[in-house]
Design a protein around this nucleic acid. Structure first.
Lengths: 153, 153
DNA sequence: ATAACTCATTACCTACGCTAACGATGTGCC
DNA sequence: GGCACATCGTTAGCGTAGGTAATGAGTTAT
């Protein structure tokens, strides 16, 4: 009974610590992501950038697949893709065997725009990292993989 | 000269490592932030949530101040605040000494909605943290402060 | 009193989330 | 082959949100 109470108290304490850590991590990750967004220089909207990024990450895909990745309904993706195609940042192509489908490919301009934006974002962060003392930088270097695993949960 | 070349090579290597780390950190932070957003259950838009969160974080404020925090132009904030006031999530009040100004206060409903969303987000992450092995969790715990400092850069 | 500045709002445009509806195409069954 | 059903992307209409330009009310300085 005393042992059981001890375990129960330890578990509660650990759960509380997890909750507190979660709060801190969520807040700082959210803020850092927002701060990174501030380094954007393109006139494209967040939605347009996200669409281009998804095609780049996962390769050419149909409209419906893209809508699923972006977690929006098909009419929404139709419109965004229309604007991006007009800007020459992606191409719409017929599907090889299903004439209902449209396959989206990133254009060279689209690739370059994404690369430029990513490079700018990463340069800003690289400079911030350089300003850290070596112990803190090492900490971040070792933690980044854990963050990545959390992101894929 | 040999010493100078050695320094130059070391600097270049460090710069490259920083760039690489920046790339990884930016990507994983961005992904984790996006993952956290997926735990939202409210029907409010991201903009509306952000507005409420800003008022909660910084306290009651005038329209112009809020627009500045949100980095949008005044007409945009007018509209968003109008919807949120209609929903009863915030209140518009006259400024005590400047009749041009409108001061925005979070309502009790607004506070509760924010608390519920944050709690849900943090609970998801707490569960993910509990699934980590103790060494990884410790790593995150020690790194979170550094992330926070980066976010405020 | 007047001019200049500040504040929030209105009007209009573009972009984007949704639902409902639609036509074209593909699949499976008789 | 014909038909019913499913899938795909699009169009139409509504609401939200970003911008600029313009406006009227209020405040400050001369």
């Amino acid at each position: 009974m005393s042992y059981a109470n001890q375990m129960s108290a330890d578990t509660r304490q650990s759960t509380h610590a997890d909750a507190r850590l979660a709060e801190l991590v969520a807040a700082s990750v959210t803020r850092l992501a927002r701060r990174l967004r501030r380094e954007r220089r393109t006139d494209l909207t967040a939605t347009q950038l996200s669409v281009l990024g998804t095609i780049r990450q996962h390769g050419p895909m149909a409209m419906g697949t893209l809508a699923a990745y972006e977690r929006v309904r098909p009419p929404s993706i139709t419109r965004t893709v229309h604007y991006l195609a007009e800007l020459g940042l992606l191409r719409r192509e017929a599907h090889p065997s299903d004439r209902r489908q449209v396959v989206l490919h990133l254009s060279v301009d689209g690739e370059e725009l994404l690369a430029a934006e990513r490079q700018r974002r990463d340069a800003w962060l690289a400079q911030r990292l350089r300003e850290l003392d070596p112990a803190d930088k090492e900490l971040v270097r070792r933690a980044v993989g854990v963050l990545e695993r959390l992101a894929h949960a």
